[in-house]
């Protein structure tokens, strides 16, 4: 289990800063696919950090929501990584990313239907059985809905957990992004969300764009500070008690001090919760 304190997404440029001055950072998250090479600096750094910090392995490549079965080669790579890192947590996304052998490098949306629910739950069970560990499933950032969707997202997540025995990762920024883009109330979403199943929280930055119709679209960019509205939602979530909380900043990665300040803010709120 990860400690109910702040963590950050590890970036190689912060390696020395992190060792010298970890500040409030109590654990680290890595993207599994960046550590699937045979050796060299990435694996050496991870080996060093895993001896000092609890590690969360966060996958972006399993394509849990894909129509086809999970890629056995990728599952094997994931198992090899988890077996040596022995992460405190493993998480993936409610999304698909590959189709017919092509990898799109994005978290793509799926409709929420009885059919997709059965498939996603089966994929998670398969992955958990093979990896020999429980998975946390992250809610997506959405830009569109599918007309055939007949399950609300929170109910879809809850039912997947019931069937597959997995837990949840609550990305509060994704809730705000989806709420803005799809026009629902983020607070209502959080009120309906099965918070007791959430074992980790993600906070990240988004950017606002204006689409062709003049509507504001929030894009889950992970390239900015956490938005004030997201901090407010986070405070509301913490009423249910502290959870390990990650500051996610993957693009235009800032100086270590800037990242630490974000983690510090989360840490202060966690202590008060």
């Amino acid at each position: 289990m990860l400690p109910p304190r702040p963590g950050v997404g590890f970036k190689p440029q912060h390696f020395q800063d992190l060792l010298d001055e970890p500040g409030p950072v109590a654990w680290l998250e890595i993207h599994a696919e960046n550590y699937m090479g045979a050796g060299g600096r990435p694996l050496a750094q991870l080996r060093h950090l895993a001896e000092r910090f609890p590690i969360s392995v966060h996958g972006v490549g399993l394509s849990i929501g894909g129509e086809a079965g999970l890629d056995p080669d990728h599952l094997a790579r994931l198992k090899a990584l988890c077996d040596w890192v022995q992460p405190a947590s493993f998480s993936e996304h409610l999304a698909w990313s590959s189709h017919a052998g092509v990898w799109f490098n994005d978290l793509l949306p799926l409709p929420y239907t009885g059919e997709t629910l059965i498939r996603v739950a089966a994929h998670i069970s398969h992955a958990q059985d093979l990896l020999g560990r429980r998975m946390l499933l992250e809610n997506p950032s959405s830009y569109m809905t599918f007309p055939e969707s007949d399950w609300p997202e929170v109910e879809f997540l809850r039912e997947i957990c019931r069937r597959a025995g997995c837990g949840l990762l609550l990305d509060v920024n994704n809730v705000q992004v989806s709420a803005t883009n799809l026009g629902f109330d983020a607070m209502a979403y959080l009120a309906a969300y099965p918070i007791d199943l959430a074992e980790e929280i993600h906070l990240g930055g988004h950017r606002a764009e204006v689409d062709a119709d003049g509507a504001t679209v929030l894009v889950d960019s992970h390239g900015a500070p956490v938005a004030e509205r997201v901090w407010q939602l986070y405070a509301d979530v913490l009423r249910h008690g502290p959870r390990p909380t990650l500051i996610e900043w993957d693009n235009d990665v800032p100086e270590w001090a800037t990242l630490c300040a974000e983690a510090d803010r989360a840490g202060g709120m966690l202590e008060g919760s």
Partner: peptide, 10 residues
């Protein structure tokens, strides 16, 4: 030539 694997390092 889109990627054929989620491991993009190569």
């Amino acid at each position: 030539h889109p990627p054929r694997s989620p491991v993009l390092m190569l």
